[in-house]
Structure formats: structure tokens, C-alpha cells
Simulated assay, not measured.
Amino acid sequence: MKIKMSLLFLVINFCMVHAQQELISEIKNQTIVIDSLSKVIKKERDDLKLLNEKFKIKTDSINGLKSTLSKLEKFKNEKKKFDEQLKLKSDSISTLIKQKNEITQKISDDKMKYEQNMISEKEKTRLEFLNQITNFYNGKSFDELILNSSKNTIERDLKITGTTELKLLLNDLKVYFEARDLLDNRFNAEVTKTKLDNLNKIKQQSVLLEKLKDQLENYQSVNNGLIECLKSLIDLDMKGLVMSNSGHDKEVIQLKLNKIQTQISKFIFDFDFNHADYPYLSNVLSKVIKLKVPNPDADISKLLKNIE
């Protein structure tokens, strides 16, 4: 009985030990499983955290995109308004350009019409003026034309006249006036001969033309006569200056004045000198008289140089 009890106890003890060992083994296994699960859980938590962070980044990105999209929509709306305004401006500019082109064309047309009218009026005026010129010269003698014309008017009319016959007449008048100008200037033998030759080519019948020829033919002779007259007056000065006498004897002064007058009168008489015929020489003689009458001793040597 004791042996049975002991054996039973051993069996029970063995069973308990075995059960305890199995329990420990099971606990160990469960511990391993728990550790594995803990690691898995930790990994899942880490992954979840990472996912949360990524989700936050995506969310922020989405929010940013939403903001950008909102701005883009706003920009689209503003751009639409701007495009509408731009189109209005473009249409307005096109209208203005069209108006400008129309105005420019009108100005161009008006300018062309104005220029054509000006040309027409200018030609009309030229023809009228030419007709007046032709009428002025027609039917008048050469002497009448000389008396009613001038060198300037002749040169002006030569520029616009069209008829050959009138040009020939105007050229003859121009030769006459150019030759007559010599009498207003200091004598020049070479120029005087050339102008006289030109006068001799004129076929017009004219008293004034013949008179001018005579004046030019005699110009040198009259000029030399005035030179001799002035030299004789200077010779009188060389013989004595009456105004330097302390008493200024009136009879002595008058005597010299009479001699001066005699020399001047002799020149005028000998050459039948007409002041209007020789303007340059007449001007010199007038200056001599103006100097010598108030002062018989006045120096006229400079005047002599003007004609020598």
C-alpha cells in the first residue's frame, strides 16, 4: 500500500513536473511570441508615425496646391477680365488706327489738291503777269521803254518771259542799262570799249541809245578834262594859300575864288559838261565845289585820285 502510494506520488509528481515544464516552455514560447508581437507592434507604430508624417506632408502639399489652385482660379478670372479689357483696348486702337489712316489719307488728298491748286494758281498768275509784261512792252518805242524801266525790272522780266521776240528786246534793254551804269562809276577804258561794242550791236531806233553811245565815246575825254581841271586848282594851291594870311584879305580870297571858278567854268564850257550825263564825274566836281567855296585852300588831292 505504501509502495502504491509512493508510486502514485511519483507519478503525480512526475506529471506535475512535466506539466510545469510544459507550462514554462509554453510561457517561454508565449514570451517569444509577445516579444515578436511587440516588435511588430513597434514597427507598425513606427510605420504609422512615418505614414502620419507623410500624410501631413501630403496634406500640407494638398493644402498648398489648393491655395495655388485658388490663386490660379483667381488669376484666371483676373486674366479673363484683363483679356476682355485688352480686347476692348485692341478694338479701340484698331478703330483709332483706322481713323488715323482715314485722316492721313484725307490730309494727303487735301494736300495734293492744295498743291495742284497752287500750281494752277501759280501758273495762272504767271500767265497773267506774263501777259501784263507782254502788254507793257508791246507798242512802245525803245526810248519809252528806257524811260519806264530799270535794270532790275528788265532782269526780272527776262527770267519769266517765254517769247523769243520779247527776250531779244529785253536783252537789248539790259545791254543799255548795263552800259549806262558805267557812267555811275570810275572810268575804265577796257570795260567802256566792251560795253560800247555791245551797244553798237543793238538794232533799235533810239535817241537815248545814240546819246549813251556819244557819252561813252566821250567819257575818257571828259574824264581827262576834269583831271586837268583839278590839277590846275591844285597848282593854284601850290602858288599860295590865301586863307593862311593873318588878315584874311577878302580881295585876295575872292581873287582865288574867281580863278577857281574860271577853271571849273572852262572845264564845263570846253566839254559842254552836263551834270546828268556823267553822274560819277559830276559827283566829284560837286565835292570839289563844296570844299573850295568855303575854303579856297581846301585840299582836293584825294578827289583827284578818284578819277586818275
Rank of each mutant, 00 (worst) to 15 (best):
P279R: 12
L233T: 02
K74Q: 07
I268D: 04
K292C: 04
R156L: 15
K151G: 06
I264M: 09
L88N: 11
R45V: 08
E155P: 01
D181W: 05
L257K: 05
N148P: 01
L147W: 06
K159V: 13
E178L: 15
E22K: 14
E121C: 03
I146V: 13
H18Q: 11
K195W: 07
K2C: 01
L130E: 12
S232Y: 02
I12S: 07
L182R: 08
E165I: 06
K106Y: 14
D157K: 12
E26K: 05
L304D: 08
T59I: 01
K89S: 08
E78N: 15
N283E: 13
I3Q: 12
F14V: 11
E44T: 14
V284E: 04
E121Y: 14
F187M: 05
S149D: 13
K193R: 14
T153W: 12
I268R: 12
L147M: 15
L226M: 09
P294M: 03
L48H: 11
K266Q: 15
Y176D: 03
S286Y: 09
N13E: 05
M238V: 04
D297H: 10
H275I: 08
T125L: 15
I119C: 00
E144D: 14
S265E: 12
L304F: 13
K302E: 08
L86W: 09
K100L: 14
L241Y: 06
I234C: 13
S221L: 12
K28W: 01
S149M: 13
G139Q: 13
D272K: 14
T59K: 00
I264K: 08
I146H: 10
N245V: 02
T95P: 01
K43T: 15
Q105S: 12
N138F: 12
N295C: 11
V242W: 08
S67G: 00
V11N: 03
S108H: 00
V40M: 11
D143K: 05
K42V: 04
E73G: 10
L303A: 02
L233P: 02
G247N: 10
K76P: 00
